[in-house]
């Protein structure tokens, strides 16, 4: 995949930073000029530190991902709370190692961080395409949930998977 042009990345990052500044200053008009200067400088610095990669965010995929993330966050919180409040403390901790289908870079990073907030999983070690997960209950269908999260993360970057071969297209 071709990396996005630096100019487009610069404009998008600068705009996002400016919106954050606007929110942090509660829309204070007198601070907007200074905020614009800071946004431009930080966007420039971010290009030096994190040059544009070949992955582009898809607005629709991102929106669907937010919905998925929010609903699964509720499930995750309720799941741990239910186990904690149950007198028998029904947990069966253990580790599993999975081979990720997502490509190196932002997609894998987003998946590993998301999984730490999803029900029953905690990213312990990410080495190459091998992700070690700590599971609260290894009797649950952990891998099925992880694959679904992986599919959702892939969609954020416009990636789809061939399930038969298990490789990114």
């Amino acid at each position: 995949m071709q990396p996005a042009s630096p100019v487009v990345t610069f404009v998008l990052r600068g705009a996002a930073l400016f919106v954050v500044w606007w929110a942090l200053t509660l829309g204070e008009v007198s601070g907007l000029g200074f905020g614009a200067v800071v946004a431009v400088l930080v966007a420039w610095l971010s290009l030096r530190l994190f040059p544009p990669s070949g992955f582009r965010l898809r607005p629709l995929g991102l929106l669907l991902f937010f919905g998925y993330f929010l609903s699964r966050s509720v499930v995750a919180g309720l799941d741990v709370a239910r186990r904690l409040l149950s007198p028998a403390l029904p947990v069966h901790p253990g580790e599993i190692i999975l081979t990720l289908r997502l490509p190196e870079g932002s997609p894998r990073w987003l998946l590993a961080n998301t999984l730490s907030l999803m029900p029953g999983t905690l990213s312990a070690l990410l080495e190459g395409d091998q992700l070690t997960l700590h599971c609260l209950d290894t009797r649950d269908p952990v891998e099925r949930d992880v694959r679904e999260t992986e599919r959702q993360v892939g969609r954020v970057f416009g990636l789809t998977f061939d399930h038969a071969r298990g490789a990114a297209l």
């Binding site: 995750a76 741990v80 904690l84 700590h134």
Partner: peptide, 22 residues
């Protein structure tokens, strides 16, 4: 409560991250 009921570090983190997020 998870800090007290769970006995190992990793399970405790499960409780703190997910329940506090919610």
């Amino acid at each position: 409560l998870g800090l007290f009921r769970f006995s190992d570090t990793l399970s405790r983190i499960h409780a703190l991250t997910k329940v506090d997020n919610l």
